[in-house]
Design a binder for these strands. Structure first.
Lengths: 267, 267
DNA sequence: CAGTGGTCTAGACCACTGG
DNA sequence: CAGTGGTCTAGACCACTGC
């Protein structure tokens, strides 16, 4: 494997996808070939060459396209699959992962009922309390890598399970990429909000970081979650990132934990 | 690769390590060869053939021992390394993972200061409040797969960072495997408690599940954590498991989250 | 320098899916 | 049945460690 320009055999007429070797490099950070291939596949995902839910080319095709062996492509795809960016299905092919799949309805929601599994209480009820344009406060701007006062969309909603309000969420999104998002759209859409982001705004949330605290309910919590004054609530602040590792959503969740709990596995 | 008895070439004189193929099986759950090898390596870990921190045989040696190719051993070791049971170090070899390493001092503790990284406040101070024998209550027995009233050791301790008490922990351990554990031993030991479990009781904690809730501080919390009455605290109930997937520790932690938060990454 | 894990290849065959 | 991902092998070479 050496440095060479893309021969442009047939794959459309895009992508400067050249696998760069480090033959004569002075070892300034060695990067194996499969990682370079991984990067090229990632670029195609970022560029939208294959959209969420779609089938990507077979390993053999990708191997031919990048002029490497199937094994090398395999290792690249392995890593992307481990990061939940791709989904392998034996006999069918490799697909771009999506939030719209039934199996992983609430991939980022770790709150589960104390007894039974999620879904045992029936489908979640989602009520949009409000959806408005506003200006980013200092902390919202910092979390989303915006400037103070930049336009943001602010959504507030309540999730109920088995008829009882359990979660209150405040969500902030940069206004530009989510132009046109409305309360009606949110209310009518069936499926996870992140799936709507994918199909309507071409925004795929790939990863998130959460900071969890215990707080006392304030007046607005008491009203919307129907809890007594001062009830301890779980405060879950989440920043979600896209393919490009840009922060694209800030979400502050307030969870009732009298009948549910946040579940986490430590490897 | 077929069914065959272990030739006993040289590796000591233990282990019935036979790789079983499924040549004529009616496909009742297909298990690839590398998973069988993984199981054999796991057995050696469970049996204590290699102890935490020790070097295990090279991939070539293991391949010869199991009569498979290096690539197959590699895949087995890859999975064990991904599960944090083994640790690969290029040029040196593969080691049995341990809680005693500096890099991963608090592998299971996800509480971090709001500003700065863990350790920025200096070393943690650990005060053992009590260490006593008692009998398992119904919920403790259930969590540890014991019978009601079985003997357990109960430890209570406070962790302080930067001089301030932040965490109160109640820990339950089955009495038999941890016979001899004392408050002095806990107080004198430098390093993570799980490292002490490894070296003194041959108990390696491999995995844990946590249930997180928000609760209001009670009288004992107020006193030991020096918080005002009713302060919201994070309640973290952890069950830790060994190599054999047996629950070996129940730990109820109460975290102050006014200056710290529980950090979690969602893949 | 030898020994370790890490990468890359080429080829054979297996398990699974769908037409 | 052809096409996909999944497994297994054998061999060559590279990057890193320590003597």
């Amino acid at each position: 494997m050496q440095t060479f320009p893309e021969p442009v055999t047939e794959p459309a007429m895009m992508s400067p996808e050249v696998a760069i070797s480090q033959a004569s490099m002075a070892t300034p950070a060695f990067s194996p070939l499969y990682r370079q291939i991984k990067g090229l596949i990632l670029n195609s995902l970022r560029a939208g060459e294959w959209k969420p839910g779609e089938l990507i080319p077979s390993e053999m095709d990708l191997a031919a396209r990048f002029h490497v062996s199937q094994g090398t492509v395999r290792k690249a795809v392995d890593e992307l699959a481990a990061e939940n960016l791709l989904l392998r299905r034996q006999g069918k092919g490799t697909f771009v992962a999506t939030h719209a799949e039934q199996q992983v309805q609430f991939r980022f929601l770790k709150l589960v009922p104390d007894s039974g599994t999620r879904g045992s209480e029936g489908p979640a009820q989602r009520d949009i309390i409000e959806c408005k344009r506003s200006r980013a406060s200092a902390d919202v701007a910092r979390a989303l890598a915006l400037r103070n006062g930049d336009n943001v969309l602010q959504v507030r909603r309540v999730l109920s399970f088995g008829g009882a309000p359990i979660i209150l969420e405040d969500i902030w999104l940069p206004a530009a990429p989510f132009k046109g998002l409305s309360a009606e759209q949110l209310a009518n859409y069936q499926g996870p909000m992140y799936a709507l982001f994918e199909t309507e705004f071409n925004m795929r949330m790939v990863r998130a970081e959460e900071k969890i605290r215990a707080i006392a309910a304030t007046a607005q919590h008491e009203q919307l979650l129907k809890v007594a004054p001062g009830t301890p609530l779980l405060s879950v602040e989440r920043v979600a990132y896209t393919y490009r590792d840009e922060p694209m959503e800030l979400r502050r969740g307030y969870y009732r934990t009298d009948t549910h709990h946040y579940h986490n596995t430590l490897g």
